[in-house]
């Protein structure tokens, strides 16, 4: 990631990203430690906590798209997220059909989010290859 600390939108994004990742680690620890000790709605809540923290990352990227005042950097970010979406959905869709006919093993759905984050890197590479500028968000 090109850390442009003069860019206030990027500074806010990095702060939100760091908070989300810290919450993710804390929530994952809590969920794994206590989910077997509870039942009912509380078990669902505990089990969902790490995922909810990951939603914070999606939210942070969404806010960056809204708050980035530089139209060129915003365009790079839009392209990057579109590539990430295409990348993750394409793999998830094909994998799902292969899984349906039992040609590949089952993969937990949260890996789609991981694929999307990998896709941000692919999007950055696509930007670099096509425009010569990778953008700010990785």
């Amino acid at each position: 990631m090109r850390l442009n600390n003069k860019n206030p939108a990027m500074r806010r994004y990095l702060r939100r990203l760091a908070i989300s990742m810290l919450l993710y680690m804390a929530f994952l620890f809590i969920a794994l430690r206590y989910v077997d000790a509870v039942t009912g709605p509380l078990a669902y809540l505990l089990g969902a906590l790490p995922g909810i923290a990951v939603l914070g990352v999606f939210w942070a990227i969404g806010r960056l798209l809204i708050e980035e005042a530089d139209e060129y950097l915003r365009m790079l970010l839009v392209r990057q997220t579109l590539v990430a979406t295409a990348f993750s959905l394409s793999i998830a869709t094909v994998w799902g059909f292969l899984e349906n006919v039992k040609l590949v093993p089952h993969v937990d759905a949260f890996y789609i989010a991981i694929l999307w984050f990998v896709g941000l890197g692919v999007g950055s590479l696509v930007n670099w290859l096509t425009i010569g500028d990778s953008g700010d968000c990785k």
């Binding site: 860019n7 530089d70 950097l73 500028d133």
Partner: peptide, 22 residues
Amino acid sequence: LAVSRQSVNAIETGKYDPSLPL
């Protein structure tokens, strides 16, 4: 212009067309 240096470079080299306001 209150934009990034990357923006100026992209516009100068014709890689990016600025919006009408810019």
